[in-house]
Every structure is written in C-alpha cells, then in structure tokens.
Nucleic acid binder design. Sequence first.
RNA 1: GGCCCCAUCGUCUAGCCCGGCCUAGGACACAAGGUUUUCAUCCUUGCGACAGGGGUUCGAAUCCCCUUGGGGUCACCA
Length: 613
Amino acid sequence: MQQGDRVPEAFEVESQRTARRAGGEPLGQALLVRMRQFGVARLGGQVEHRARAQAAVEVLVQQHLRRAQEECTRELSGTARVRGGRTALHGSNLGLLRLEIEPRRDAASARWSRPRTSTILCAPMKSPIRVRFAPSPTGKLHVGGARTALFNWAYARGRGGQFLLRIEDTDPERSTKEFETAILEGLRWLGIDWDEGPDVGGPHAPYHQRLRIERHREYATRLHVLGRSYRCFCSRERLDELSKAQEAAKQRLAYDGLCRRLPQAESDRRAADEPFVTRFAVPEGETRFFDHVRGECVFQNAEVEDWVMVRSDGNPTYNFVVVCDDIDMEITHVFRGEEHLVNTPKQVLLYKAFEAKVPEFGHLPLMLGTDKKKLSKRTGDTALQDYRDKGYPKAAIVNFLCLQGWAIDGERVVFSVDELVQRFDIKDVQKAGAIFDLDKFVWLAGEYIRHEPLETLAANCAPFVLQAGLMSVADIDARREWWLSIVAAERERLRTYADLVGRMQYLFAPDVDLAWDAAGEAAARKHENRVATLSGFQAWLAERAKAGYDPVKVRDEAKQWVAAQGWKIPQLFQPLRLALSGQMGGPDVFDMIGWLGVERSLARIADAARRLL
RNA sequence: GGCCCCAUCGUCUAGCCCGGCCUAGGACACAAGGUUUUCAUCCUUGCGACAGGGGUUCGAAUCCCCUUGGGGUCACCA
C-alpha cells in the first residue's frame, strides 16, 4: 500500500467533524487515538465531540482496522468493538480506550486467531490531514475543478484536516489575475473556505506558485547535487527528429537519454555558453503508490521518460514545482482529476529522490460530455460561472457535482453540504467517468427551488428580474406582496432562478398585441365559441369587479357563472389564459387578473377577442 | 500506436473490497394513469442493466484470466 514496502508508523488521522461545523455545541478536546497492538500497526484517529466520541471512535477503529488488514493481511484479521469510549474523553488530554478483537480465521493458515483485548492511548494532536486544491488561473473555474475542490474540502472538513488553496500561476502566458479572482470567488460562492491560501495567507506562504520560484530552484539544485538530474543540450531539431523517427518506427515517444551519458566535465563546460534544460534522471525499477480510488498502482520506470524538470529559461515545470510545493506545504493527500494519473509516477519518483514522505493519492473519475469524452465546451457549459449565471441554486450545484462520481448511499439524491462533509470518503468515489447528466441537474435545481423558503427564493430570483429590466429594487420594495405572491405561484414551474424572468414577462408587456406562444394560441383556437365566451366573461368581470376584486371570491363565482352559461370550463379558461398571459400554462387565471389589475385584464381580454376572430 | 485507467438500466448510481440475503435497489429521463381551469407540482404504475467468453466455487454482478468496447496520456501547459 504505502510503497508496498513498509507499514507506516502511524496512520493518518480520521475524525468526525471539525469544531467549526459542530453546530454550536461545545466541543471536547481534540484527541488522537493511537493504537499499538497487533504488533504491526498503530492506528490513529481524532475525535472531537464528547457526545459523539463513542460512535466516532468505533467508526475510526473499524476503518483503520480495515486498512490495516489490507496492509498486512497475514498478521492481522479481525473486527474491533470499542468499549468504554467515554473514558477517553473526560476533558483530559489523555485517555484510554479498550478494544476487543473478535477471533477470526486467517485465510492462509486456516487458523483462528485468539480473541484479544487491547488498549488505546489517546493524546491530543494537531490533525495531520492536509489537502489542497491547486487551480491554474488560465480560465474560468471548470465544473470538474469545482468538484475536485469540493471533494478535497469535504475530506478535510470531515476529519478535522486542513484545506489549502494554491494558485498554480507558473504559466505567465496564460495566467491572469482576473481568472484567479474569479476562481477564488467561485469557490467561496460554493461555500468552500480554506485554511491557507493566497488571500488568507498561512504558515507556508506564499500560495502563489510563481512567488515560490526561489524555493523551487533550491530544490532543483539539491537534486542536481544529488546527481538525480542532468543537463540536456539537445536542440529542438534533434528532439523533433527523434520523435519523428520514433513515430515512424512505432516506438514509444520519449527522450532517448543522450545527454544523460554526458561526462560531468563536458556538461559543466557546455553549460557556460549553451542553452540547456534539466531533466530528471528516472531510475530503473518500478514505481508504486497508493490511490484511494483505484488501490495500488504500479508503473514501470522504463515507461517514464526523463522528463524536463527545468526549462531552458530556468523556470521549473509543473511536475517539479507541484511536488516541491506539496512537500513544503506538508500535503498528505492529493486528490485530483484522473488526467493526472500518468503524472503520478514522475512525481512519486521526485518525492523519493528528496526522501520526502509520499502523499496518498486519489484520482477522481473524469466528468464526461455527452460524447463520453472529457467535458469540454463543445458539449455544454463547463464553467461554474455559466451555471451560476443561469440561476442554478448553488446548493443544487454542489449536490449535483457530488453526485458525479459519488453517492451518499445509493438511495438518497438530495443532501446538504453538512451531510456531504459528514459522509464523504474518498474511497467511495466511483472509478469510471461520469457523463454530465444535464436533465438530472435541471430536475435537482427545481427540487431545491421548490423547497426554498419563499423569501429566500424571491431574493435569489430578484437579481435576474432586475437584470432583465423588468423591475427595479424600488419596485420590488414597493410591491412586495405582489412580488412575493407571483414568486410563490410560479415556483413549481421554475428550474432556475432565471426562469422567473420568462414566466413573469407578460406582466410588463403592453396590453395590446401581447406576444402569444403557438401552443397557447392553438389551445384557445380549438374552441368554436372562443370569442363569445371571452366577450361574455369580459362583460361579467367588468360588472362584477365594481364590487371590488378578490381572486378567491371571484373564482368561485366565475365557476358558477360559467356553469350557468352551460359552458365547459376549458372553453373559457384556455382563451382567457391566452388573453392574459399569452402562454399555454401558468398559475391560476384569477391570480393573474389580480396581479395585472382588472383594468388591464379587461383590455387584454378585449384585444384577444379581436385577435381570435 | 506505446503506456495507463475503466466497464451494473438511455443517464447518475447502490451492491463488488469481505461470493449466497440480488427473481440486481434508488434517482433522472421516458410511457401510462390519477389530482388540477391549463402548464407545472404531487401520487401510482410501467419500461429498463450486471459488455462477451472462459475459469475458480456447491454457489459469482461480486474473485481470476482473455476478448471487446470506451476513456486518459504521451509539451521546455498545468
């Protein structure tokens, strides 16, 4: 698992939730659970909340036992029961937990293990889990990136770890401050916060990769001194020819290592007046690493080329700096998109060259377009901003993004961010790529809208109505009741906040020659006596409204009146709906009359009667 | 093409690691019906999958192998 060659000294900590998410309840001292039984493994964990301690510890122990089993199948087999978990958490810094390990059969020897008990020592500690999201400000925040950030964040928050943000702006050509700001803003909008980052600082500042260049150079020098890298003087031309020849010979495309064989003296001499890049000298053998999504991964080093570490202009490349920064920032878990899987052996080799602890990885499945290829602009909106601008509720976006590659339990679809944090585990993410299911996204957005408190919904819709120029802030304030009743009536038809604009546009249109949609007009025209009913109703309403207009009363009376005329309900209502709104569907027509006012309604009915002849 | 990854309803997924509770569960979409002044919501029902082939086993969606299919990646970009 961990390099496949040793059992880690202590496992990374798992915890229930961070203090800040504990819903205002008082928290106990953060405790580390350390177990030293079984002769082979120590299991670590962190527990925070007293009331939850028992359950938390139990979960931890189960999880860690399971991992320990994978780690050393022969030595360890069993499930643990935790007793007396509370004793560990009486506000003291130290505590003891007793474990009972049930007997279990060892598959290899077919022998039963002895039932055992074990004691765990608990001591406070800083959570060692540190994850990061490292976007490159060369474009808007991609929804896939947003999901990666979300998973990293949830992982950290769910177990008392730290989440940091680092801006990978080492490509000066394409990086812009605007994109950087937009990305930060987008993440924050989603509800993601970071413990360390470019704007909030932190003990490992700076968090702009570009500003860490001196540090990167130190690392590069160190590697050079170690003899793990070498200068390469090969010209572009030679490299081009090389790959052309390799392609023709159907060989793999890779640097052939010519300069690796250069004597040191010659390399030093040529370095004085010739341009060169620095390549990493990939050793022989194979490289293993643990991936929480895919399990143990093995790559043959022979397949990894001597990649360029430092460019001819002296700037290090991505694969190099990402490792330097992750080492410096003490990153313990690297969760990122699957496209980075093939970069991983290069990076692992670097960690080893620096004799640094290799983090655990987790390569998230790609988000696919309808063409089953990596989600691109060709097959739909890819930027988080696009969905935000279209008025998708952010909780729906978060929820939906998580659903791409992860499921809370297979039954439930709608869940909150809190639940995500509580339940998310990297090991539960799907290995296969997920096609971005827009239909489901739209449905989910509607689901959130339908459950939002009315005031909140109205506030969320308002910017779109404002932007469309339908109303001003002053209008909304002045006609608050009116505005809210419209939102309330339309909500079940909304899938995005922006949908409201189209739904209520008719209220602001002129009363003559209102735009009609085809389906609505067709529905109205299929009634032979449409003009008669409309005109009849117009007269009735004009008369009736003299006594004041109350939708509830008028609705009842109108229905009776329609029945008395011997008409069928749709004969009046379909043309009437068209007359008022120009649309086929919509809220109750008497509500519409209320919103429009009797005066304007009568005008529209008269106009429709004329147009429907 | 080399290397790597993946494979359950049309789509998102549960189950797979630790084989029997699976005549494979949920959700979206679709279809039918009900409620309704329409649209929508809501409710009920239906349709619908373990890629194929070999093993291992008393038993495989679950473990192993092969085939097929899909994807990723092969920059002095991140």
